[in-house]
Design a protein around this nucleic acid. Structure first.
Length: 257
DNA sequence: ATGGCTACGATCCGTAGA
């Protein structure tokens, strides 16, 4: 079974190409971020026609997250329970015999800014939420745009990025606090080529130069990690016309459910 | 050179992303 996370950077702009990729890649579960849609604009019927049940939690203009599943999708929870947040960044559901939490973590803008403080507060709330989820769901996947490059090898130019937002020490500590719950970065379960990224700046020919960051991740609980057979990034849709600046990250799980 | 691109919703520029 194939689990995918993809920050689409406006579904409206890319609906057709996203549907084309879904038809080709045939993921079983899709976590989507930055739909930039209100819930009443979510094209549930288009995805239904492709064979997906879906749940969307959005606000229009900014943010917006969704989970699509080829099998029935239930127990949908929106946001981080107990964490008041106007920004629609989290949705969870039970699909294919596992609990899936789809996250669009805050960008943080600049170290020391209000948005950066919000990002760290938000990560603390996410940690507490996932801690509780792990108690209830040993089969837990957390997939999304984390806006954190965990290590220097996830950064095309670590010197240029040193201390910047996405790689700063407190952000990486917030990331490691998620791993400390018992979650595994599926990508690092395997030998990987160097310089694999999931996001490239639109400017300065970032993609052509492979000047990117690996910030889109699939985290797996211990039990799910044992079933994981691969974790990759598909750069193909980033090469198309008017692409999202993010590429989809995929994890393969050996699970019958 | 501190920009550079893209999307959004407002208009013909500002905000935000990463």
């Amino acid at each position: 079974m194939r689990l995918v996370t993809w920050n689409v950077n406006s579904l409206r702009v890319r609906q057709e190409r996203i549907e084309g990729w879904l038809a080709e890649a045939e993921p079983d579960v899709v976590c989507m971020q930055e739909t930039k849609l209100a819930d009443d604009a979510w094209p549930a019927l288009s995805f239904k026609a492709l064979g997906y049940e879906s749940a969307h939690y959005g606000q229009g203009q900014w943010n917006g997250v969704a989970i699509l599943s080829r099998r029935s999708l239930g127990d949908v929870v929106e946001g981080i329970p107990g964490f008041a947040d106007e920004q629609k960044r989290v949705i969870a559901a039970t699909v294919h015999g596992m609990r899936v939490v789809c996250v669009y973590c805050p960008n943080g803008q600049a170290v020391g800014s209000d948005k950066y403080e919000y990002k760290l507060r938000w990560f603390a709330a996410l940690r507490d939420y996932l801690s509780a989820e792990l108690q209830n769901h040993p089969r837990l996947a957390v997939a999304g745009d984390f806006n954190v490059a965990p290590e220097d090898r996830d950064v095309h130019d670590p010197k240029a990025w040193e201390g910047q937002v996405h790689v700063s020490v407190p952000e990486r500590a917030a990331w490691r606090a998620l791993l400390a719950l018992g979650l595994k970065d599926s990508f690092r379960l395997f030998e990987q080529p160097e310089k694999v990224y999931s996001w490239w700046d639109y400017r300065m020919m970032g993609f052509r130069r492979n000047a990117g960051l690996r910030i889109d991740h699939v985290l797996l609980s211990e039990e799910l990690a044992q079933t994981c057979t691969s974790s990759t990034v598909d750069k193909a849709p980033r090469k198309l016309e008017r692409p999202s600046d993010h590429a989809p990250a995929l994890a393969e799980l050996r699970t019958g459910a």
